[in-house]
């Protein structure tokens, strides 16, 4: 085990949580991320291989999927982001690459992103103030790329009252500020 101590995107030893009115904003650091992009004409093969390996049916445009420790959302044509628990799958990219071989390009994305899970009844009111995603009609399982606080982000609807937002890690502070300001606004 190496000796380097990690810090969270917000620069702390422990993930941050803010409770503002009915809204809870939680910094999520326990997920490993890897992008999977099918090589030319390998979309179907990659879907099959991923299904065999992880049980995930790779989702279509605007969707996410979850099976066991794995979850995936659509990022682009024949391109997905796969997530799994960091503790058990820190080397997720290597793990997927070994299954997919030269059928796909796999890139470690774990620390490219910060993730905040936002929960609470006023969820849609909050996200309406942050981004132009149609959050009210996004059912659990919907995922979308949009901008919030001038940042490119992904939203994944985890449940009726829970949305995960993935943003660029270096701007975690700005994204967090935007989430908190919007939460205060609707609290």
């Amino acid at each position: 085990m190496h000796k380097l101590k990690p810090i969270t995107p917000l620069g702390s030893d422990t993930p941050r949580q803010d409770v503002i009115g009915t809204i809870t904003i939680t910094e999520v650091v326990d997920q490993a991320l890897a992008s999977v992009a099918a090589r030319t004409d390998q979309g179907a093969t990659v879907r099959d291989a991923m299904s065999d390996k992880t049980g995930l049916a790779l989702p279509d445009v605007g969707k996410s999927a979850e099976v066991g420790p794995y979850s995936a959302f659509w990022m682009g044509p024949d391109q997905w982001m796969i997530t799994a628990a960091h503790d058990s799958h820190e080397l997720l990219a290597a793990e997927l690459k070994s299954s997919l071989g030269d059928k796909a390009s796999v890139v470690e994305q774990t620390d490219g992103w910060c993730r905040f899970d936002v929960a609470g009844a006023a969820l849609c009111d909050l996200f309406e103030r942050l981004c132009n995603a149609p959050v009210r009609t996004m059912k659990p399982g919907a995922a979308i790329r949009t901008t919030a606080e001038h940042l490119g982000v992904f939203l994944q609807r985890l449940a009726d009252d829970r949305i995960a937002v993935f943003g660029p890690r270096s701007s975690a502070g700005s994204l967090h500020h935007g989430l908190v300001a919007a939460a205060r606004s609707v609290a």
């Binding site: 992008s35 090589r39 391109q79 890139v107 994305q109 620390d111 992103w113």
Partner: peptide
């Protein structure tokens, strides 16, 4: 478009 090439940014992923 006929090249088999995939791109993604990893600027943030690596210190």
């Amino acid at each position: 478009p006929n090249m088999d090439v995939q791109l993604i940014s990893t600027t943030e992923a690596w210190a």
